[in-house]
Amino acid sequence: MNVLLTHVDYIAAVAIFLVGLYILLVKQNLLKKILGLNIMETAVFAFIVTAGMTDNGVPPLLGPDAVGPFASPLPHALVLTGIVVAVSITALALALIVRVKRECGSVELNELGKVE
């Protein structure tokens, strides 16, 4: 039980991940699927940031008088990059959804199956 408590941050990330996955799997609306995807992404980012977290830590800004303990800078950089990537994908997905809506008249996957 103790383990669950100490790792509660990770578990929370996992929970968010699962929520996103559920949406992705179950929802037929493409937009909702993208939302689910974004939730999953957020979860993963949270997970990575959690890994770099330091209890009572400060941001890794190394001024002349900066005093630790610092949070690990690496996960933050990774997540920053990850976010940009996620944004890019989301943007492309949205553009494609717009296109699908225009060309196929729907964004519901179960209706789109009948296209053509």
């Binding site: 383990v3 669950l4 100490t6 790792h7 941050d9 990770y10 578990i11 990330a13 996992v14 997970f47 959690t50 890994a51 977290m53 330091t54 209890d55 830590g57 303990p69």
Partner: peptide, 13 residues
């Protein structure tokens, strides 16, 4: 969850 609880405890330096 089985995997993450086996990770090093978050926050520890």
């Amino acid at each position: 969850i089985a995997a993450v609880v086996n990770l090093p405890e978050p926050g520890t330096t």
